[in-house]
């Protein structure tokens, strides 16, 4: 989950989730950065509206939690 936490950290700090930003944060956390993974996360999060996901999480706890089962 490091890549996701790092992305949410950037999001929460209102920074863009770019490859460079993500790599910086992960490196600072002592994570051995996997370039491919960084690229995948950046591309995926461009498509996913994080605020939307979190808002839905709050509004629909049951449905939202389902994947966690």
């Amino acid at each position: 989950m490091e890549y996701i936490y790092a992305s949410l950290l950037l999001h929460s700090a209102k920074k863009d989730i770019t490859e460079d930003n993500l790599k910086n944060v992960l490196t600072a956390a002592g994570v051995n950065v996997d370039e491919v993974r960084v690229k995948a996360v950046v591309a995926a999060l461009k498509e996913v509206n994080i605020d939307e996901v979190l808002k839905n999480a709050a509004a629909m706890p049951v449905a939202a939690a389902a994947p966690a089962q």
Binding site: M1, I4, Y5, S7, L8, V41, A44, L45, E47, V48, I50, V53, L54, A57, A64, A65, P67, A68
Partner: peptide, 12 residues
């Protein structure tokens, strides 16, 4: 993308 969404949710 759904996996990413659920991971975001889990992280949150």
């Amino acid at each position: 993308l759904d996996d990413y969404k659920s991971q975001i949710l889990e992280s949150y």
